[in-house]
Amino acid sequence: MPVTYEEFARTRLPALLRFAVMLTGDPHTAADIVQDTMVRAHLKWRQVSAAQSPEAYVRQMLTNAFLDWRRGSWLRRVVLRDRPVEPPPATDPAQESVERDRIWRLLAGLPRRQRAVLVLRYYEDLADADIAELLGCTVGTVRGYASRALATLRASAQSVQTSGGFDDRG
């Protein structure tokens, strides 16, 4: 029996918000993108619910919304913001926590498709073939995005180790 929109929203909205936060790095933009996506999904729910996996369908809509999202969206302008929100400072003083916070900031600097691939692979645990279908590209392209993104993160980590510290200005 097809799931109703109300049931879907009630059970999946929190997870979609978390997914959007991983994509955007910014809770405000995440809320904006999720709202836009969910309204569009609601308006064509018959089509969405007929899909093999409504959740995968909506997740694809959400990912596309993220990839197409224009910089300087109204949400940021409303709060007069001109760049994504930084995550709150780490409360754990351990070096491990500092390192994770640093990686989170580095993610914000990746091209959107690279970041999306990392989120889909390491947060949503999707296989490369599923990511390729979701993004409308080949598996090779997905692996290329992932490879370049991971290389960027590794290079940055190596740079920190070499310099003995992390430049927190950026």
Partner: peptide, 22 residues
């Protein structure tokens, strides 16, 4: 780095805004 990424994502789930008002 892959394992760290999983931990980074998990650590930042708390940034998600509340669902009810949205």
């Amino acid at each position: 780095i892959e394992d760290e990424l999983r931990e980074v994502f998990a650590d930042h789930e708390e940034l998600a805004p509340p669902a009810a008002p949205l």
